[in-house]
């Protein structure tokens, strides 16, 4: 099980007029081959920025302040823009959230696929076109030949997301990052897209990073989870462990807000909102919303501690509190 992407103490700040937004503030994790990883957290927790920073495409006023990023042991953060382009799309593919806006409305599907293929391979236009048709077939688009000539607005939301996935696959990446790939889709289409991602992973021997706020998707798609809160890692563990024995109150709160069919229980929404990241709360950033907060949580930043075999948690009180859901 080789290491694919390693992010080490990454800090990415946005220098806005209102102040410095510490969107990602010391995030570390490893994505391994064949071990689908979930990045989970509310919107604003820094999931997307972390990945964009790893791919070197945080745009101004955002800036990577510190941290190291490795792909298969190779350090990425010193690479030139030209070298990074060989990573983006070629090693790491990215599917963004909203299929309705992730395709350029003014160019045909074929044009956009060929563009990416020819960025990464020395193909002629015809070769690239044929590859594009094959990609569309791979992601399950019927009449791929005609669809190549379609404009995005002529496709349904689910179709567009399939095209977006096809484009992410065009460079034959080893790692696919899917950023909320189903949030903007109808429920029936969601299942199809998830199935497609699973099948493709196996078929193409490609690993997956799934960005989501939905613990249900995490359970279905991933083997390992990194829980992010306000730009920091709250907890990292295997998916199974997170669901069975959450150690961070925030993880538990996320779990409690997911409906479950097997048990009858009250859904508990998380009170309060994501904190202001210009002046984040002192100590543990979750303390204003945490039911278990004590003085130490206000005063000191909790370290990310080992809490078991390949398990990390950043909470002062993880040993004392029992967060298992009552069976």
């Amino acid at each position: 099980m080789g290491e694919l992407l390693r992010v080490d103490d990454l800090r990415t700040y946005f220098y806005t007029e209102a102040g410095v937004v510490k969107a990602v503030d010391g995030v570390s994790f490893v994505a391994n081959e064949g071990e689908p990883l979930g990045l989970v957290g509310e919107s604003g927790s820094g999931k997307t920025v972390t990945v964009l920073a790893a791919m070197g495409i945080v745009s101004r006023p955002g800036k990577i302040v510190s941290g190291k990023i490795f792909f298969k042991g190779e350090e990425l953060d010193h690479k030139s823009e030209k070298e990074m382009r060989k990573i983006r799309g070629k090693k790491i593919g990215y599917v963004s959230q909203d299929p309705n806006s992730s395709l350029d409305p003014l160019f045909t599907v074929g044009n956009q696929l060929v563009e990416v293929i020819r960025t990464h391979f020395e193909d002629t236009k015809d070769q690239a076109w044929d590859k594009g048709v094959k990609l569309l077939k791979l992601v399950g688009i019927p009449e791929a030949d005609t669809r190549m000539r379609s404009y995005p607005h002529e496709l349904s939301g689910g179709m567009k997301q399939r095209v977006a996935i096809a484009r992410a696959l065009a460079g034959e990446p080893e790692l696919l990052v899917a950023d909320e790939p189903t949030t903007n889709l109808d429920v029936t289409i969601q299942a199809q897209v998830l199935d497609l991602l699973k099948t493709l992973g196996k078929q193409l021997n490609m690993s997956l990073i799934l960005i989501t706020h939905d613990m249900g998707l995490i359970a279905e798609m991933t083997k390992r989870v990194v829980v992010l809160y306000a730009g920091k890692v709250a907890e990292e563990a295997s998916t199974l462990e997170v669901f069975q024995t959450p150690k961070h109150p925030y993880t538990a709160a996320l779990l409690a807000s997911v409906p479950r069919l097997d048990r009858k229980e009250v859904l508990v929404p998380i009170g309060g909102g994501i904190p202001n990241l210009i002046t984040p709360p002192s100590g543990c950033r979750f303390h204003p919303r945490c039911a278990y907060a004590k003085q130490i949580c206000i005063d000191q930043i909790p370290p990310l501690e080992e809490s078991g075999q390949r398990r990390l948690v950043a909470c002062h009180r993880w040993k004392e509190i029992d967060l298992r859901r009552k069976a």
């Binding site: 395709l103 409305p105 956009q112 990416v116 992410a168 065009a170």
Partner: peptide
């Protein structure tokens, strides 16, 4: 430049020149 398709094009390795002057 804030649109998702610009981000998506960058993320697929398309050069900044093409992102700017094509899309």
């Amino acid at each position: 430049l804030r649109q998702d398709y610009v981000l998506a094009a960058r993320a697929s390795g398309v050069s900044e020149f093409k992102v700017t002057f094509k899309h």
